[in-house]
Design a protein around this nucleic acid. Sequence first.
DNA 1: ATATAAATAGTCAAAGAAGGTCAAAAAATG
DNA 2: CATTTTTTGACCTTCTTTGACTATTTATAT
Lengths: 152, 152
Amino acid sequence: MARLTDVIETFIKEIINETGGEAEIQRNALASRFNCVPSQINYVIGTRFTTEHGYFVESRRGGGGHIKIKQIAVSKPYNRFMHLILSIGDSISEHAAAAHINNFVDYMLITPRDGMIMKAAIGSKALKSSNAENTDYIRADILKNMLMRLIV
Amino acid sequence: MARLTDVIETFIKEIINETGGEAEIQRNALASRFNCVPSQINYVIGTRFTTEHGYFVESRRGGGGHIKIKQIAVSKPYNRFMHLILSIGDSISEHAAAAHINNFVDYMLITPRDGMIMKAAIGSKALKSSNAENTDYIRADILKNMLMRLIV
DNA sequence: ATATAAATAGTCAAAGAAGGTCAAAAAATG
DNA sequence: CATTTTTTGACCTTCTTTGACTATTTATAT
């Protein structure tokens, strides 16, 4: 018997294909359509539509709320970009992060100005209030989020 | 399902654009136009036309009363950034930070692309590995560092 | 002038409408 | 049978809508 998670995953992917890259869903509506609890939708999104899978997710609560799942552009330059993003890993030092950013600039995937802003965001001064054990993890998240944002 | 709040927000912004910076509305008239209770207008103003969003609101009650929503005049980017940097304090919420960034974009002090990168850097997804008590502090540092970088 | 009515706008809290989190239970997998 | 993945549900947070009550200003009738 097909897993519900897979069914919902497929359903969302169909919407993404039909609309050319983006699905805007309502959690409760989708849950009742598939006869499951709402949090199952979160499970599907959390396991099948992650950054690693090439998706970017946004949401809003309250009346008229929704969840938007965007597929990252799959054109050639972005494949390479995505590859680099994935190579960053869960944790990264300031030095390594800056090297990556410089690299992106060199390959002209981002502008020098983008690079400046990004380096300011991941610098040790910016992260000084974090607990030392977390700093490199936070830095990796920030870096990936900034880069992802540019390709969705 | 479109939120009424967004519809009203857009309506007011159109007036502001048409008149070059100021909308003078009547609360009850607007409410009946959009078929809602008058206090909804206050809600829209209170959530979408705050100082942080770059607006200044005045009103009068009684016969011929009205609400005036003015767009705050812009000063030099350097001054705006510096002012914000100084006024941010040690800690800031994602909501407030994003409002400031959007404001800079609206006033063309930074590009939409810059804004996207910055919002990605201060978003809760980017800071999820931080300890909850620190998040707003880290966010403030990141924002200040990015802005500083642009004026130095 | 003064009191009263009418016309506005403001405040605040409750109800409603989403979505999020986390951990336990159940099912599938190897 | 141990481990991983999926399903479920209780509880939480955020945002919007609504309405009862309050405050202020102007108009009108003594």
